[in-house]
Design a binder for these strands. Structure first.
Lengths: 214, 214
DNA sequence: GTCTATATATAGATAGAC
DNA sequence: GTCTATCTATATATAGAC
């Protein structure tokens, strides 16, 4: 049985090869990102992790339990990464802009968004939950940022924060799709520029770039 | 060998069960949509089509050739469907709005967008080409519509048509992702409303709803 | 805990009868 | 053109030795 993503034993600090369980989770994260759930075999996982089959089935009951740990981990990493941009100081526009423009390896796509195209994942309540939670959090967080911008007088009152937030989140996920179809990051960048320009038009006069209006 | 999507023989008009080859393409379209390329087995295809294994390998060299025919067909159907909205009369905003609001079975996602998450598809130049062409066409077509709106004086000159078009296309694809993560069409609808509201703010004063300005 | 068999089902395709 | 064997490789997991 899988003994929990966080629990039992934290890295000792001087743990060299980082532990079998940890390596299994990491290689599963990578493979799910590259190949999706159905395209990822237990064999590929243990080969990339450099462990034997017995080890894998000792730490995890099977493929789906390992995938659950990997998906949770990826979602948490993504959440932290987004929060670094969205929680930074600056105007609402600046923070959303930072989120949209942060360095991404566009052609690799989103490790969590990708999972929504995997039948076995969305059909499993357990596996789907981390996706739902991450994107729910993300939209909520962007909504907060936009609403705060309105309260501060940076953004037009007519803007619907929740709808704007959904559009921003969708542009990122859809940008990946367009970029992968073209095998070129350009459509992603264009979509981001497009939504940013539309959002910029919602700024109130005088909210140019840096407004330290607490 | 597969003898071409369009060619050799068109439906006779009174052809009852529609032909083995046609049934194979249709069931492949469905399965690729539901399960993706890697998740679709030849066995599943022929079972859904109701034909034997020999028939399938008689008409198509293998899975990838069949997938190519199915993907081309789906892309063409999608193109026609989009053109019905984007080529309709009305203001640029109305036409883009019609495209964004047309009836979609949101939780099923986009049959072509889905393929971008399939490693075997994007790594195959032949299989990826129809995706590239469809999304390239789509963004170009929306760009035209927006640019035309500007020329007609309906939309603000400051709007970048190509970036706006990329954003619109991305919102649709990303909307599917958010909706599937939530197992609920609501995020899709919210994203569409969000981008439409932002676009509406680009309309010039006096271009309310129906402007028959030829 | 980790390893090497072993086992069953399916994937993807070929061969050859009708 | 269509069908039923047949075939090899892999997916996913279990068993049991060390």
């Amino acid at each position: 049985m899988y003994s929990g993503t966080m629990g039992t034993q934290e890295p000792r600090g001087t743990e060299q090869p980082r532990g079998t369980q940890e390596r299994l989770i990491r290689s599963t994260q990578e493979l799910l990102w590259e190949r999706g759930y159905v395209g990822t075999s237990p064999k590929a996982i243990l080969e990339r992790a450099g462990v034997g089959q017995g080890s894998m089935y000792h730490h995890f009951a099977g493929k789906s339990e390992l995938a659950l740990a990997a998906i949770r981990r990826s979602a948490e990493e993504l959440r932290q990464s987004a929060e670094e941009c969205l929680g930074a100081p600056g105007t609402a526009y600046d923070r959303v802009s930072a989120y949209l423009l942060r360095e991404r390896r566009v052609l690799r796509g989103c490790p969590i968004g990708r999972m929504t195209q995997d039948r076995d994942v969305v059909h499993s309540p357990e596996l789907r939950r981390p996706l739902d939670e991450l994107f729910g959090w993300l939209q909520g967080r962007i909504t907060e940022v936009l609403a705060e911008g309105q309260r501060r007088g940076e953004l037009a009152d007519g803007l619907d924060p929740a709808a704007g937030a959904a559009a921003v989140a969708a542009v990122v996920q859809g940008g990946y799709v367009l970029a992968r179809a073209a095998e070129d990051p350009a459509p992603f960048d264009a979509a981001v520029q497009g939504v940013l320009a539309l959002l910029a038009a919602q700024r109130t006069p005088g909210t140019a770039t840096a407004a330290t209006t607490g």
